[in-house]
């Protein structure tokens, strides 16, 4: 329950910090930290416009998408604090319920009959499929390290000891951050601020969403960022008590948002046909982490 609350709070600030970082890097003052939340609030009160081509799938898509993200958050624990739901294999549920949301957002895009949205849907389907193995391997490696198979048990028993395990945890954190960037369609896979539909992925899929639906999609995106970062926090929070854990939670959330902002300020988007290679590289790093864990647990000697 605590983790759900913390993630909801972090999500309110996350995108604002990214935008602010980018503004500062570009030498501008930038909007307030809570601007994205104001935007969502305003969108929720705006009327929607629907295309006559769209059927019920398009209308249900944002709802299922948002609900899937919330359901995924409900299985994330916070250190020793259990999640709302916890069972063996809950990380499989986590990944698959997110995939359900993705399936609906892809179908919603295809329902508009627009060629641009089809283009975005096609890319989203491929890239997020390619990113999935890296996530499973990372979770697999911590499951191997701790001998448990649910988020809560894994993170409650994860006590990093020697420097090697810290290195592995950092690698894992890097991969999770990258997975979060891919899942949220940010740089270096996709540039959310591009103004050319041909080069967009996520943004082009939601071109026809407006009003309440768009608000849901945007807020789900913020939630997703905070959710993945909460996973990263769990790698390090371990046995810390709440008085240290909560500040650590917010500082890691803040650091992640700043890193994303800096990366987006100084990096260019990859060429579309280089994206699969980039994502495959992530999977191979994840494989390296697994072998590192095998080394640590003494099975490779």
């Amino acid at each position: 329950m605590l983790s759900l609350l913390l993630i909801l709070i972090a999500a309110c600030f996350f995108d604002g910090i990214i935008i602010r970082t980018k503004s500062i890097c570009a030498g501008r003052k930038g909007p307030g930290i809570l601007q994205p939340i104001y935007d969502v609030w305003r969108l929720w009160h705006k009327a929607s416009v629907y295309s006559p081509t769209c059927g019920w799938v398009f209308r249900w898509a944002p709802i299922v998408y948002c609900a899937s993200v919330l359901a995924a958050i409900s299985v994330i624990p916070f250190g020793q604090q259990p999640a709302l739901f916890s069972f063996d294999g809950d990380f499989v549920f986590f990944a698959y319920i997110l995939a359900l949301g993705k399936l609906f957002s892809i179908l919603g895009a295809l329902d508009t009959g627009s060629s641009f949205e089809g283009m975005g849907a096609s890319r989203e389907a491929l890239f997020s499929m390619l990113a999935e193995p890296a996530f499973f391997l990372i979770i697999g490696s911590v499951a191997l390290l701790t001998g448990h198979t649910s988020f809560h048990d894994i993170f409650a028993h994860l006590h990093l000891g020697d420097p090697v395990s810290y290195a592995l945890a950092t690698l894992a954190a890097f991969i999770l951050l990258m997975v979060a960037m891919i899942e949220n369609s940010r740089l270096p896979i996709d540039d959310p601020k591009t103004h050319l539909e041909l080069t967009m992925i996520h943004e082009v899929m939601i071109l026809d969403n407006s009003g309440f639906d768009l608000g849901l999609i945007l807020s789900s995106g913020y939630l997703k960022f905070a959710m993945y970062t909460a996973l990263i926090v769990n790698f390090f929070v371990g046995g810390l008590g709440l008085e240290w854990g909560i500040p650590l939670f917010f500082s890691i959330q803040f650091a992640a948002a700043v890193i994303i902002g800096v990366v987006e300020s100084f990096m260019a988007r990859l060429r579309m046909n280089h994206n699969p290679q980039f994502i495959f590289a992530l999977t191979s790093i994840a494989l390296m982490v697994i072998f590192g864990v095998l080394l640590l647990s003494g099975q490779l000697s």
């Binding site: 995939a99 993705k102 399936l103 892809i106 179908l107 295809l110 389907a125 499929m129 193995p133 697994i290």
Partner: peptide, 28 residues
């Protein structure tokens, strides 16, 4: 590890496959 990799990829590819058949046939 490799079996999990295979199963994850199968799952992801199935999503591409069925969004295609459903999206192209019934939507738009």
């Amino acid at each position: 590890s490799f079996a999990i990799l295979a199963l994850v990829l199968i799952g992801g590819l199935a999503i591409i496959c069925f969004t295609k058949v459903f999206g192209i046939t019934f939507l738009g």
